[in-house]
Simulated assay, not measured.
Amino acid sequence: MKFSNQELLKNIQEIGHVSQKELPVKVSYAIAKNISKIESELKIYGKEREKLIDKYAQKVDGKPLSDKNDQIIFKPECKEDWDKDIKALLDIESDINVHKFSFSELNGFKLSAADLMAIDYMIDEK
């Protein structure tokens, strides 16, 4: 299944929340496997993002500057290039072999609509 880096960043937080709940073993295992796969992809994203930060950020003593809200301060002449490159990085898609489970595995367990939406792509409806 294909996911953009932006989708993976959003999804890892959502399924991380669901993974903290008491779930059936098969469901918990599938979620844990998928988290591991997503984290692996996001490590690569993180390294590439750091390269862009290093390239475009204002620096003091070789370290990127940030404002009082911990937002990175970019060189004024590089802001457009940063915006373009980070968008391109966020749009890159990865193909992840999603570990699935049957919806019936959730029988008797209460999950919110938001929880179900977060793990929807893991549910095998066959």
Score class of each variant (00 low, 15 high):
Cys78Phe: 08
Glu93Trp: 04
Lys75Val: 03
Lys51Ser: 10
Ile86Gly: 04
Phe74Gln: 00
Leu106Pro: 11
Lys43Gly: 07
Ala113Pro: 00
Glu77Thr: 07
Leu42Val: 08
Asp91Lys: 12
Lys59Gly: 07
Ile44Arg: 13
Glu77Gly: 03
Ala114Cys: 03
Asp70Met: 05
Gly62Ala: 09
Ser112Thr: 15
Asp54Gln: 14
Glu48Arg: 14
Glu48Asp: 11
Ala113Asn: 12
Ala114Met: 12
Lys100Gln: 15
Gly46Asn: 14
Leu89Glu: 09
Cys78Leu: 10
Ile96Ala: 07
Ile92Gln: 12
Lys55Gln: 15
Asp91Asn: 14
Asn107Gly: 05
Met117Phe: 12
Ile119His: 01
Asp95Asn: 10
Met122Phe: 13
Lys43Arg: 15
Leu89Asn: 09
His99Ala: 15
Lys55Cys: 05
Asn69Pro: 02
Gly62Gln: 12
Asp54Tyr: 11
Pro76Val: 03
Ala113Ile: 13
Lys100Asp: 05
Ile73Val: 15
Leu42Asp: 03
Met122Trp: 04
Cys78Lys: 15
Ser40Asn: 12
Asp61Glu: 14
Pro76Cys: 04
Leu65Met: 14
Glu105Ser: 12
Asp70Phe: 04
Ala114Gly: 06
Lys47Leu: 10
Lys43Asp: 15
Lys68Ser: 11
Asp85Pro: 07
Ile72Val: 15
Lys110Val: 10
Phe109Ala: 07
Arg49Gly: 02
Glu105Gln: 11
Leu52His: 10
Pro76Lys: 11
Asn69Thr: 06
Ile44Ala: 10
Asp120Leu: 11
Pro76Met: 04
Asn107Phe: 07
Gly62Asp: 11
Asp83Val: 05
Ile72Phe: 02
Asp70Pro: 00
Arg49Leu: 10
Met117Asp: 13
Phe109Glu: 08
Asn69Val: 02
Asn107Leu: 07
Asp124Met: 09
Leu111Pro: 06
Glu50Ser: 12
Phe103Cys: 03
Glu80Ala: 12
